[in-house]
Amino acid sequence: MQNLTKEHFEPISVDLRQAEAIKRPSLSFWSDVWRRLKMNKVAMISMIFIAALIVCAIVVPWLTPQDYFTTDLAGKNKKPSAEHWFGTDDLGRDVFERIWYGARISLQVGLAAAFIDLIIGVIWGGIAGFYGGRVDEMMMRFADILFAIPYLLVVILLMVVLEPGVGTIILALTITGWIGMARIVRGQILQLKNQEFVLAARSLGADANRLIFKHLIPNALGPIIVTLSLTVPSAIFAESFLSFIGLGVSAPIASWGTMSNEGLPAMKYYPWRLTFPAIFISMTILAFNLFGDGLRDAVDPRLRK
C-alpha cells in the first residue's frame, strides 16, 4: 500500500459558470427523430421501398417503349414473358406498364388523402378534445352527422357536380375520411389533458395554442401516426371502390385498385392479372405500416433519452 500524499492529487478548477452547460449536442426534435429512425432497419427498408416506388412511378413509364392504352386483341391474356414482364391483360395491354401508371394514381390518391385527413383531423379533434364541453359536443356531433349521411349518395352527387379525376377522388375520400382521425386525436387529448405535465405547462402560462400543438399533440403522436400509416392504404382501397361506382380515373388509365378488381374474376384463369396489382398494393401497404411503426417509436417523446 502506498501512502497517498498530497502530491498525488491535483486540484482541478471548477468553473461554476460551466456547470450548467449541456454536454449532449443539442438536437432539434426532428433531427432526433431522424437519428432514431435511422437505427430502425425495418423502417428504413420500408422507407427506401416507398421512395423507390415513387421514383419508379415517375420514371418507368418514361423509359419503357410500351404504353398503357394500346390494345392488342390477338395478344390478350398472355403469360408473363421477356416481352411482357407481367403478362398482358384481357385487351392485350402490358400489365407491367399499367402497374406503373397505376402506381402514380394510387400513390397520389393515398398520400394526398392521408395528408388532408391528418390536417383536418388533428385540428378538429385537437380543438374539440382540448376545449371539451359545448365546443366538443358541437364539433363531434357535426362529425357524427356527416358520418351518418349515406356516403355513396354524397359521392354520386360529387361525381355529377365535378369532373371525374384524381382531384375529385381525393375530395370524395377526405369528405368523411378525416372523422376517424379526429376521433382518435380527441380521445387522446381527453386522456392527456388532465395529466400533470399539461397542468405544469398551463401554470407556466402556456396558451391554448401552445398547449395543444406543443404539448398535447406531440404526446398523442403515436396513435396519430399509426392512424396515418393506415389512412394511406385505406385510401388506396377506397379509391378502388370509387372507381367502380364511376368516380375513378377515366379508362383506359387504371389504378391498382381497379386493376385488382378487374383481375379478380380472372383469378382462376389468368392469375397474373390479379397477382401483380395485389402484390403491389400489399407491399406498399406493408411498407407504409412498418414505416409508420418505426416513425411512431422515433417520435414518441417518452422514448427520448
Binding site: F69, T71, L91, P164, S250, A251, P252
Partner: peptide, 20 residues
C-alpha cells in the same frame, strides 16, 4: 377501350372515355 383504340389507329381520332 377497344373501340377507342381502334378509332385512334384507324381514323387517327383522339377519344376520351367517360363513364357514369
Amino acid at each position: 377501350e377497344a373501340i377507342q383504340d381502334q378509332w385512334k389507329k384507324n381514323l387517327g381520332v383522339d377519344v376520351k372515355l367517360e363513364n357514369k
